[in-house]
């Protein structure tokens, strides 16, 4: 798997994907729906998959000593790596918002620890919808991307709506950027990362099983 991941980084990962990490800087916009950052992550993964398909990556892989299931697992691992890098690149901006640039976001959730947790769940959900749909035939990308974007949009709307229901933990504790309150948000961050891991692993399982029965 290490070799495969190395191959994915050398041939499949594009500089554009890495440039998209800079979009974590959107968290510095005073009033903005910050979850949009993760939509760009999904778009980057879609473009990456498209480039791999046009470069006939599957034909290249067919000469290497790897199974079809391994090919899928490696691709999911690359996507997860990119997504974790996106989350990690958000952290400096969350810290800036917490300790240096205090701004209350008027249009959406605050850039804080809770946001990162909910964002991790959103990326896991993207993986769970996008990859199994794509690996049904290993070719279609448009419909899986639209489906994944639609599902994650609903998830984002639900998360944003929760912040507007007065009196609940999600709107009181999770809407604060105060360091003390963010400590109370850490369980949500941990839960988000766990959901991300579980959904991505499940996406890899289902995708690998489906792709193994696809005729290339």
């Amino acid at each position: 798997m290490k070799l495969l991941l190395k191959k994915e980084c050398r041939l499949v990962l594009s500089p554009v994907q890495l440039l998209f990490l800079l979009l974590s800087g959107l968290l510095m916009i005073p009033n903005y729906p910050y979850f949009i950052t993760f939509f760009y992550t999904g778009l980057g993964i879609f473009l990456m998959m498209q480039a791999a398909r046009e470069n006939r990556d599957a034909a290249f892989m067919s000469v290497l000593p790897v199974s079809k299931r391994d090919m899928v697992r490696a691709r999911l691992a690359l996507a997860a790596l990119v997504e974790l890098m996106q989350l990690a690149s958000c952290v400096p901006f969350v810290l800036l918002r917490t300790y240096a640039v205090h701004m209350q976001n008027a249009v959406g959730m605050e850039a804080n620890a809770a946001f990162l947790g909910v964002g991790a769940g959103m990326l896991g959900l993207f993986n769970r919808v996008f990859f199994p749909l794509h690996y049904k035939n290993g070719y279609d990308l448009g419909k899986p991307f639209l489906a994944a974007t639609a599902v994650t949009a609903l998830y984002m709307i639900a998360a944003e709506a929760l912040t507007h229901i007065p009196g609940i933990w999600f709107s009181t504790v999770c809407e604060s950027y105060a360091p003390a309150q963010q400590l109370h948000q850490l369980p949500l961050l941990a839960a988000g990362l766990a959901v991300f891991a579980l959904l991505t692993l499940r996406a890899a399982q289902v995708s690998a099983r489906r792709f193994a029965s696809v005729d290339l």
């Binding site: 191959k7 470069n55 000469v63 790897v66």
Partner: peptide, 28 residues
């Protein structure tokens, strides 16, 4: 790992240099 497969119609990673593809292949 014990066979070699050559397809007359296969062309992959058209914009990549042979050196890069050889290095990746060799690593396996």
């Amino acid at each position: 790992a014990r066979i070699g497969y050559v397809s007359g119609s296969a062309a992959y990673y058209p914009r990549r240099r042979l050196r890069a593809l050889t290095a990746v292949t060799a690593s396996f």
